[in-house]
Design a protein around this nucleic acid. Structure first.
Lengths: 196, 196
DNA sequence: GACAAAATAGGACGGCTGTCCTATTTTTTT
DNA sequence: AAAAAAATAGGACAGCCGTCCTATTTTGTC
């Protein structure tokens, strides 16, 4: 709740650098240089590297919550809101092709490092999952809401990974189209099945 | 083509360690200790870290080619062969849940490091892609072969990423089922469309 | 068995990293 | 204006890293 501009600057720079270079490859010096402060000052705000990672994760969680809130305002139906999620692949296409998905790549790296903050990073996934699940629920897919949410998450992760490797714009757009069609099929199926 | 047991041991250990810990997080010492040789000896076989990465990628490419060859023998139809690909998610479920997909995680890491061997690592993806594309072609999906291959690759990547994050066995099996159903739908569609 | 070549061991080096500490400056409070 | 607190700078430290070098051992060849 503290409004500390220096600290906030550090977190933002670390957020960006960790996304672009990975957590391990990003050093104290990298971040300090990006914010134009000394390492000593840096250490005043964060007394370990793990601590700044936690701050970055918290920052991303907050950002994600805001995005989801915005989707709630933008989309007036569950369908429209889910399409907002799918649409991030288009909106963030450029950074995704360059650096992959910020959530997926961080979780993967922390898993390999066996890092204690892994569960915290996974909350980023959970945030999207729970929200998506909720949307599918209000879409009438009661029984499948969880699985549909996981499915959509997985699809978008896969697209991000391959887009990053192959740098193929057309592929992303094609897959987004397929995901939208899949969503439509879900809705059609839900319409057939009577709600109890 | 040289049959050097020490060198081969180094590559195998490096392959395993890079998969489990990531490339950057794996040090010369890590690998040397795993093979029980000195760093000096290590340097005799590989004069830089990039060089051993290239050797590992080459090793993985060779392994992948062998797997594909095996699939060619195992599956007598294109459909069966594609199912072999889908099935790796089950066969390698345990390591995938622990460490993710060896191809995807390496390519993602190299992309973040902006590593010169990135294109070489991508060949692992290309190997699968081209082979899958070929299978879809002989399945009668001439027009969509490439896209279907990319789609299947993406699906499996997404499953691996989420399986790694969530450690959910049931999810993997569920998604494999969906991928098999999707494949069946592809076949049905190809059967309807007359081949020219 | 003598000699050359290949293989191995282990230490030395500079550079970078995360961490810590102590001055100095800036800001806030009284 | 004085005193206290917060913020910043920059150097010191040990440890690890990739790299390189030089001895020593093992292997292969005549």
């Amino acid at each position: 709740m503290k409004e500390n501009p220096t600290r906030a600057g550090i977190v933002e720079a670390a957020d960006r650098l960790i996304y672009q270079q990975g957590y391990e490859h990003t050093s104290f010096k990298n971040i300090a240089d990006a914010v134009n402060i000394s390492r000593g000052n840096f250490y005043y705000h964060f007394k370990s590297k793990d601590e700044i990672l936690d701050a970055v994760i918290e920052f991303r969680l907050a950002k994600t919550r805001k995005i989801i809130e915005q989707w709630e305002l933008q989309g007036d139906t569950a369908e429209a809101r889910i399409r907002c999620f799918i649409h991030i692949l288009i909106v963030n296409q450029e950074p995704i092709m360059q650096y992959g998905c910020p959530v997926g790549s961080l979780c993967s790296e922390l898993a390999k490092l066996n890092h204690p903050s892994q569960p915290e990073a996974n909350k980023l996934f959970t945030l999207f999952h729970d929200w998506l699940s909720q949307q599918f629920l209000s879409l009438g897919c009661a029984q499948d809401a969880d699985r549909f949410a996981m499915h959509l998450l997985a699809r978008s992760q896969g697209v991000a990974t391959l887009a990053n490797a192959f740098q193929d714009e057309g592929f992303v757009k094609e897959e987004v189209k397929l995901m939208n069609e899949w969503l439509q099929a879900c809705i059609d199926q839900a319409a057939k099945t009577p709600r109890r």
